[in-house]
Structure formats: C-alpha cells, structure tokens
Simulated assay, not measured.
Amino acid sequence: MLDDYRWEVLATFEYHVGSYPSESVIRVPVGAVTDLATVPRVLWALFPPHGRYAKAAIVHDYLYDQAIGSKAYADRTFLEAMEVLGVSRFTRTVMYWAVRLFGRGNY
C-alpha cells in the first residue's frame, strides 16, 4: 500500500485472455500502481475497492495505464476476468457498465 488509495504490485502476474493457455497474455509487472477498483467512496459499502474483483481491477488499470489494445478491449477483459474470479453476475454487470460509461484511460 503506497497511500490511502494506491497499491503497488510486488510480484508479476499474468492473465490469459479467453482461456488458459492463451496466445493473448497480459503480464502485469512488478511496480505497476493501481487503486484497485475505482469506485466512488460513497459506494464503498456495496463495492469496496478491494473486493473479489481486485485482481481483475489491477489488470484493467494496467491496460488503461499502458493504453494496451482499445478501451473496449480493456473493459471486456475486465468483465471476463471478473467472471473467472467468481464475481456475481450483478456485480460484474454494474462494474462493467461503470467502466464502459465513465472509465478513463490513456486511450
């Protein structure tokens, strides 16, 4: 934890887009910085930044920060990763549409 809102990745990890193994692999490197799920503080009781979807949020933040693929690709990958992590359909849907409508990256 770097401060109240930012975290630093301490170990590289990979996400295989689509299925495992996959030709499309996202490698989040040591040192990547994330705020986990970017959720307005007023909604933290329902959607805390560090929920079951945290690893999906780290991948999503990395894609946004590095402008990898398109914004749509990053958002679809976030949705897929949340499903892989067992996030409920309701939560996945809400979080996906939040990033589709309000997400900002380096695109």
Rank of each mutant, 00 (worst) to 15 (best):
L2W: 01
L2N: 01
L2K: 05
D3W: 01
Y5F: 14
R6D: 10
W7N: 08
A11T: 14
T12K: 09
Y15I: 03
Y15D: 01
H16F: 14
V17T: 00
G18H: 04
G18I: 05
S19N: 09
Y20Q: 06
P21H: 03
P21E: 08
P21R: 03
S22T: 07
E23Q: 13
S24F: 14
S24N: 15
I26W: 13
I26G: 07
I26R: 08
R27G: 04
V28G: 06
V28Q: 05
P29N: 08
V30Y: 11
V30A: 06
G31C: 09
A32Q: 05
L36Q: 00
A37K: 01
T38M: 07
T38A: 10
V39T: 14
V39M: 13
R41G: 09
R41Q: 10
V42I: 15
L43C: 06
A45R: 12
A45T: 11
R52V: 13
R52Q: 10
R52S: 05
R52H: 07
R52Y: 06
R52D: 12
A54M: 05
I58P: 03
V59R: 01
H60R: 06
Y62D: 00
L63Y: 04
Y64T: 01
D65L: 01
A67I: 05
I68K: 07
S70E: 06
S70T: 15
S70V: 08
K71E: 09
A72T: 07
A72D: 14
Y73E: 06
D75M: 08
D75Y: 07
R76C: 09
F78K: 00
F78W: 00
F78M: 00
E80R: 04
M82H: 04
M82S: 09
E83G: 05
E83A: 10
V84Q: 12
V87C: 07
S88Y: 10
S88P: 03
F90T: 11
T91V: 15
T91D: 14
R92I: 12
T93G: 09
T93V: 12
T93H: 06
V94D: 03
V94Y: 07
V94H: 04
V94Q: 05
Y96K: 09
A98I: 14
F102V: 13
G103E: 09
R104V: 15
R104W: 12
N106W: 12
Y107W: 15
